[in-house]
Simulated scan of single mutants.
Amino acid sequence: MATYEYRCPRDGAFEVRLPLGEAGAATRCPDCHGTADRVWSAPSLARTPRALGAALDRAARSAETPEVVSRVPGRRPAAAAPAHPAHARLPRL
Rank of each mutant, 00 (worst) to 15 (best):
P66D: 02
L20C: 06
L20A: 13
D11K: 15
A2G: 09
C29D: 02
E5T: 15
W40H: 08
E5Y: 13
V16P: 01
V68W: 06
A2S: 14
S62D: 14
T35N: 07
Y4Q: 05
C29F: 02
R17S: 14
P9D: 04
A23C: 02
C8F: 11
A46E: 14
H87I: 00
A2T: 12
D57K: 15
A36P: 00
R76Y: 08
A46I: 11
G12M: 04
A79E: 03
L20P: 04
P85M: 03
R47D: 15
G74N: 08
T48A: 07
T3E: 11
A80P: 02
P77R: 10
L56M: 15
R28D: 07
S70T: 15
V68H: 12
W40T: 09
P82S: 02
R89A: 11
V72E: 04
A81K: 05
C8H: 06
L20I: 09
G24W: 11
R17Y: 06
R76V: 07
S70D: 14
L18E: 10
A46N: 12
C32N: 05
R61N: 13
P43M: 05
G21E: 02
D37N: 08
G24H: 12
P73V: 08
A60S: 15
A83H: 05
F14K: 04
A80Y: 00
L90P: 00
A13S: 13
A36F: 01
A26S: 13
L56R: 15
R28W: 09
V39K: 04
R50H: 06
D31C: 12
L93F: 03
P49A: 07
A54Y: 10
G53V: 03
P77T: 04
R61S: 14
T27V: 12
R17H: 11
H33Q: 14
M1T: 12
